[in-house]
Computed example of a mutant assay.
Amino acid sequence: MLRQLLSEPRLVPLWTVLRFWLGYQWLSSGWGKLFSPAWTGENAPVAIMGFFNGVLEKAQTGAKPEVKGWYASFIEAFAIPNAEFFSYLIPVAEVLAGLGLIVGGLTTIALLGGFTMNLNFLWAGTSSSNPEMLIVTLVLLFAGAHAYRYGVDHYLFQWIHKFRGTAKNSTSSSS
């Protein structure tokens, strides 16, 4: 029943609005970081180190810390030594996810990238708008092709199917 609801053609405009909203969230979040000296400029990775240190602090508070030990270990052993890489990766990934969702191009990849970022921000003890974004992402993933009916992917996949169909016909006619 849920699958039937998500694939209802009359809901395509709703999925499009949600996709635009989600894309705007990612684009606006990444855009500021992309041009911030503390993220990608001469002071990189100052901002991400502040974030990572906050994650480690949240892992050490109380009987039920906001950040699980395994994630704190990941931050300490892998993320901090590669802080400069993450300082560039996060803003670029946020901007690309946002652009992909807004234009409906490589939508599934953008949704999966956003899903991964949302999970990491939640594991880091940062809620903000991440729970809402995660739910919208899941809805759009389950909506499938209806999520990008009004987007670049719709026309790209039509072209690919047409091209592949033509390629099959030309191969079989030459045999």
Rank of each mutant, 00 (worst) to 15 (best):
F86C: 01
A79L: 09
L134F: 10
S28K: 13
L119D: 02
L119S: 04
N43Q: 15
G98E: 04
G23C: 07
S7H: 15
E132W: 06
G105L: 09
A93P: 05
S36Y: 05
P45W: 00
G30Q: 06
I90D: 01
L5C: 14
A147L: 08
F86W: 07
A110F: 02
P9D: 12
P91F: 06
V136I: 15
L56Y: 11
V136S: 03
L111T: 03
N169L: 13
L22E: 11
T137A: 04
S7I: 14
T107G: 14
E42A: 07
W15C: 04
A97Q: 07
A124T: 03
I90E: 03
G105Q: 03
K68R: 11
K58L: 15
H161W: 11
N53S: 06
Q158I: 07
L99R: 08
A145K: 09
A77H: 04
L156G: 01
V55W: 11
S173C: 04
Q60L: 13
L138Q: 15
L141N: 12
F121I: 00
P13D: 03
A110V: 02
T16C: 03
N130G: 03
E42R: 05
G62M: 15
S170M: 09
G125S: 12
V95M: 09
I90H: 02
L22M: 14
